[in-house]
Design a protein around this nucleic acid. Structure first.
Lengths: 100, 100
DNA sequence: TTGACATGCAGGTATTTTACTGCATGTTTG
DNA sequence: CAAACATGCAGTAAAATACCTGCATGTCAA
Protein backbone atom coordinates (compact mmCIF):
# COMPACT_ATOMS: atom_id res chain seq x y z
CA UNK A 1 0.00 0.00 0.00
CA UNK A 2 1.32 3.41 -0.96
CA UNK A 3 -0.53 6.58 -0.11
CA UNK A 4 0.28 9.63 -2.18
CA UNK A 5 0.28 12.91 -0.29
CA UNK A 6 0.11 16.33 -1.88
CA UNK A 7 2.63 19.11 -1.44
CA UNK A 8 0.40 20.78 1.11
CA UNK A 9 0.38 17.69 3.25
CA UNK A 10 4.16 17.39 2.96
CA UNK A 11 4.33 21.05 4.01
CA UNK A 12 2.21 20.33 7.04
CA UNK A 13 4.17 17.25 8.08
CA UNK A 14 7.57 18.95 7.88
CA UNK A 15 6.32 22.19 9.45
CA UNK A 16 4.82 20.21 12.30
CA UNK A 17 8.13 18.45 12.88
CA UNK A 18 9.91 21.82 12.84
CA UNK A 19 9.13 22.61 16.47
CA UNK A 20 11.02 21.13 19.40
CA UNK A 21 7.94 21.02 21.63
CA UNK A 22 6.02 18.94 19.13
CA UNK A 23 8.94 16.59 18.52
CA UNK A 24 9.18 16.16 22.27
CA UNK A 25 5.49 15.26 22.46
CA UNK A 26 6.04 12.61 19.80
CA UNK A 27 9.00 11.26 21.74
CA UNK A 28 6.82 11.07 24.85
CA UNK A 29 4.11 9.17 22.99
CA UNK A 30 6.63 6.77 21.55
CA UNK A 31 7.63 5.78 25.09
CA UNK A 32 3.98 5.16 25.96
CA UNK A 33 0.89 5.98 23.92
CA UNK A 34 -2.70 6.66 24.98
CA UNK A 35 -1.79 9.73 27.02
CA UNK A 36 -4.19 12.51 27.96
CA UNK A 37 -3.48 16.21 27.58
CA UNK A 38 -2.99 16.47 31.35
CA UNK A 39 -0.51 13.63 31.42
CA UNK A 40 1.49 15.28 28.67
CA UNK A 41 1.48 18.60 30.53
CA UNK A 42 2.61 16.80 33.68
CA UNK A 43 5.48 15.13 31.84
CA UNK A 44 6.63 18.49 30.58
CA UNK A 45 6.43 20.07 34.02
CA UNK A 46 8.20 17.15 35.65
CA UNK A 47 11.05 17.02 33.17
CA UNK A 48 12.41 20.52 33.54
CA UNK A 49 11.66 24.11 34.34
CA UNK A 50 10.27 25.17 31.00
CA UNK A 51 6.62 24.23 31.28
CA UNK A 52 4.01 25.56 28.88
CA UNK A 53 0.36 26.27 29.57
CA UNK A 54 -2.26 23.57 29.02
CA UNK A 55 -3.81 25.52 26.15
CA UNK A 56 -0.48 25.92 24.42
CA UNK A 57 0.19 22.19 24.58
CA UNK A 58 -3.36 21.60 23.38
CA UNK A 59 -2.69 23.75 20.30
CA UNK A 60 0.43 21.74 19.55
CA UNK A 61 -1.62 18.55 19.86
CA UNK A 62 -4.17 19.98 17.41
CA UNK A 63 -1.44 20.61 14.89
CA UNK A 64 0.02 17.15 15.40
CA UNK A 65 -3.44 15.69 14.81
CA UNK A 66 -3.99 17.78 11.68
CA UNK A 67 -0.70 16.45 10.33
CA UNK A 68 -1.85 12.91 11.15
CA UNK A 69 1.08 12.36 13.49
CA UNK A 70 -1.18 11.53 16.41
CA UNK A 71 -4.52 9.78 16.58
CA UNK A 72 -7.04 10.52 19.30
CA UNK A 73 -9.97 8.78 20.87
CA UNK A 74 -12.33 9.57 23.69
CA UNK A 75 -12.53 7.48 26.81
CA UNK A 76 -15.25 9.10 28.89
CA UNK A 77 -14.20 12.63 29.66
CA UNK A 78 -10.59 11.96 28.68
CA UNK A 79 -9.18 12.27 25.19
CA UNK A 80 -6.21 9.99 24.65
CA UNK A 81 -3.44 10.74 22.19
CA UNK A 82 -1.43 8.08 20.42
CA UNK A 83 1.50 8.20 18.05
CA UNK A 84 1.01 7.53 14.35
CA UNK A 85 4.24 7.22 12.42
CA UNK A 86 2.62 6.81 8.98
CA UNK A 87 3.06 10.47 7.90
CA UNK A 88 6.78 10.36 8.66
CA UNK A 89 7.15 7.20 6.63
CA UNK A 90 5.14 8.65 3.77
CA UNK A 91 7.12 11.89 3.76
CA UNK A 92 10.33 9.88 3.76
CA UNK A 93 9.30 7.46 1.05
CA UNK A 94 7.75 10.06 -1.15
CA UNK A 95 10.27 12.87 -0.92
CA UNK A 96 13.11 12.67 1.58
CA UNK A 97 14.32 9.21 0.61
CA UNK A 98 16.07 10.32 -2.55
CA UNK A 99 18.47 12.44 -0.51
CA UNK A 100 19.44 9.78 2.03
CA UNK B 1 31.70 10.73 11.90
CA UNK B 2 28.56 11.84 13.69
CA UNK B 3 27.68 15.48 14.08
CA UNK B 4 25.31 16.34 16.90
CA UNK B 5 22.88 19.11 16.12
CA UNK B 6 20.86 21.03 18.67
CA UNK B 7 17.10 21.27 18.77
CA UNK B 8 17.26 24.69 17.17
CA UNK B 9 19.11 23.29 14.19
CA UNK B 10 16.61 20.44 13.89
CA UNK B 11 13.86 23.08 14.02
CA UNK B 12 15.51 24.99 11.20
CA UNK B 13 16.05 21.94 9.03
CA UNK B 14 12.47 20.69 9.30
CA UNK B 15 10.98 24.18 8.99
CA UNK B 16 13.04 24.76 5.87
CA UNK B 17 11.77 21.52 4.35
CA UNK B 18 8.21 22.53 5.23
CA UNK B 19 7.75 24.70 2.16
CA UNK B 20 7.02 23.34 -1.29
CA UNK B 21 9.01 26.07 -3.04
CA UNK B 22 12.15 25.22 -1.10
CA UNK B 23 11.72 21.49 -1.63
CA UNK B 24 11.35 22.22 -5.33
CA UNK B 25 14.59 24.20 -5.32
CA UNK B 26 16.35 21.25 -3.71
CA UNK B 27 14.87 18.93 -6.34
CA UNK B 28 16.17 21.27 -9.05
CA UNK B 29 19.65 21.29 -7.55
CA UNK B 30 19.69 17.54 -7.28
CA UNK B 31 19.17 17.31 -11.04
CA UNK B 32 22.09 19.66 -11.61
CA UNK B 33 24.03 21.67 -9.04
CA UNK B 34 26.00 24.91 -9.38
CA UNK B 35 22.99 26.94 -10.45
CA UNK B 36 22.68 30.71 -10.17
CA UNK B 37 19.71 32.56 -8.74
CA UNK B 38 18.66 33.56 -12.25
CA UNK B 39 18.80 30.01 -13.53
CA UNK B 40 16.60 28.88 -10.67
CA UNK B 41 14.10 31.65 -11.38
CA UNK B 42 14.10 30.67 -15.05
CA UNK B 43 13.41 27.04 -14.21
CA UNK B 44 10.46 28.08 -12.09
CA UNK B 45 9.06 30.34 -14.79
CA UNK B 46 9.55 27.70 -17.48
CA UNK B 47 7.93 24.90 -15.53
CA UNK B 48 4.53 26.42 -14.94
CA UNK B 49 2.50 29.55 -14.43
CA UNK B 50 3.26 30.14 -10.78
CA UNK B 51 6.49 32.09 -10.89
CA UNK B 52 7.80 34.00 -7.89
CA UNK B 53 9.83 37.18 -7.88
CA UNK B 54 13.61 37.02 -7.91
CA UNK B 55 13.80 38.46 -4.40
CA UNK B 56 11.37 35.93 -3.03
CA UNK B 57 13.41 33.06 -4.45
CA UNK B 58 16.53 34.71 -3.08
CA UNK B 59 14.99 34.73 0.40
CA UNK B 60 14.22 31.03 0.10
CA UNK B 61 17.81 30.41 -0.95
CA UNK B 62 19.00 32.34 2.11
CA UNK B 63 16.93 30.12 4.35
CA UNK B 64 18.17 26.99 2.60
CA UNK B 65 21.74 28.21 3.11
CA UNK B 66 21.13 28.98 6.81
CA UNK B 67 19.84 25.44 7.24
CA UNK B 68 22.96 24.16 5.51
CA UNK B 69 20.92 22.52 2.75
CA UNK B 70 22.73 24.42 0.03
CA UNK B 71 26.30 25.60 -0.26
CA UNK B 72 27.24 28.66 -2.29
CA UNK B 73 30.33 30.01 -3.97
CA UNK B 74 31.08 33.01 -6.10
CA UNK B 75 32.24 32.78 -9.69
CA UNK B 76 32.79 36.37 -10.79
CA UNK B 77 29.49 38.19 -10.53
CA UNK B 78 27.55 34.97 -10.25
CA UNK B 79 26.79 33.10 -7.04
CA UNK B 80 26.30 29.41 -7.59
CA UNK B 81 24.13 27.24 -5.39
CA UNK B 82 24.73 23.55 -4.80
CA UNK B 83 22.86 20.91 -2.89
CA UNK B 84 24.14 19.65 0.45
CA UNK B 85 22.27 16.64 1.77
CA UNK B 86 24.16 16.40 5.08
CA UNK B 87 21.49 18.18 7.19
CA UNK B 88 18.78 15.82 5.96
CA UNK B 89 20.93 12.83 6.83
CA UNK B 90 21.75 14.28 10.24
CA UNK B 91 18.09 15.05 11.01
CA UNK B 92 17.17 11.54 9.97
CA UNK B 93 19.93 9.79 11.89
CA UNK B 94 19.54 11.89 14.98
CA UNK B 95 15.79 12.08 15.34
CA UNK B 96 13.56 10.81 12.54
CA UNK B 97 15.19 7.39 12.21
CA UNK B 98 13.57 5.94 15.32
CA UNK B 99 10.13 6.34 13.73
CA UNK B 100 10.93 4.71 10.39
C1' DT C 1 -27.60 16.71 41.58
C1' DT C 2 -23.63 19.13 42.56
C1' DG C 3 -18.64 19.65 42.63
C1' DA C 4 -14.40 18.40 40.63
C1' DC C 5 -12.28 17.22 36.59
C1' DA C 6 -10.80 17.22 31.34
C1' DT C 7 -11.14 19.49 27.51
C1' DG C 8 -12.78 23.08 24.03
C1' DC C 9 -13.52 27.76 22.40
C1' DA C 10 -12.78 32.79 21.96
C1' DG C 11 -9.71 36.45 21.97
C1' DG C 12 -5.44 39.06 22.40
C1' DT C 13 -0.48 39.97 21.59
C1' DA C 14 4.21 39.55 19.90
C1' DT C 15 7.03 37.34 16.59
C1' DT C 16 7.99 35.04 12.34
C1' DT C 17 7.07 33.94 7.63
C1' DT C 18 6.11 34.89 2.86
C1' DA C 19 5.41 37.66 -0.53
C1' DC C 20 6.25 42.11 -2.78
C1' DT C 21 8.68 46.86 -4.69
C1' DG C 22 12.42 49.94 -5.12
C1' DC C 23 17.07 51.18 -4.79
C1' DA C 24 22.14 50.14 -4.15
C1' DT C 25 26.39 47.61 -5.02
C1' DG C 26 29.63 45.18 -7.50
C1' DT C 27 31.24 42.78 -12.06
C1' DT C 28 31.78 41.84 -16.78
C1' DT C 29 31.84 43.22 -21.58
C1' DG C 30 31.68 46.21 -25.57
C1' DC D 1 34.33 54.19 -19.17
C1' DA D 2 29.45 53.03 -19.67
C1' DA D 3 25.76 49.79 -20.25
C1' DA D 4 24.06 45.47 -19.01
C1' DC D 5 23.98 42.05 -15.77
C1' DA D 6 23.74 39.43 -11.05
C1' DT D 7 22.97 39.97 -6.68
C1' DG D 8 22.19 42.37 -2.05
C1' DC D 9 19.71 45.39 1.13
C1' DA D 10 15.76 48.01 3.08
C1' DG D 11 11.14 48.47 3.92
C1' DT D 12 6.16 47.01 3.69
C1' DA D 13 1.94 44.30 4.22
C1' DA D 14 -0.71 40.11 4.97
C1' DA D 15 -0.88 35.81 6.99
C1' DA D 16 0.56 32.28 10.11
C1' DT D 17 2.62 30.86 14.54
C1' DA D 18 3.28 30.51 19.48
C1' DC D 19 2.30 31.90 23.58
C1' DC D 20 -1.07 33.55 27.00
C1' DT D 21 -5.83 34.40 29.98
C1' DG D 22 -10.65 33.70 30.77
C1' DC D 23 -14.88 31.43 30.18
C1' DA D 24 -17.87 27.53 28.50
C1' DT D 25 -19.07 22.71 27.88
C1' DG D 26 -19.44 18.08 28.94
C1' DT D 27 -18.55 13.90 32.17
C1' DC D 28 -17.81 11.27 36.23
C1' DA D 29 -18.37 10.36 41.19
C1' DA D 30 -19.87 11.36 45.89
Amino acid sequence: MFVYVHDEQLDLIFKTLGDATRRRILDLLQERSERSLFEICASFAAADGKSLSRQTISQHLDMLERAGLIITSWKGRTKTHSLNVAPMQVATNQWLKKYL
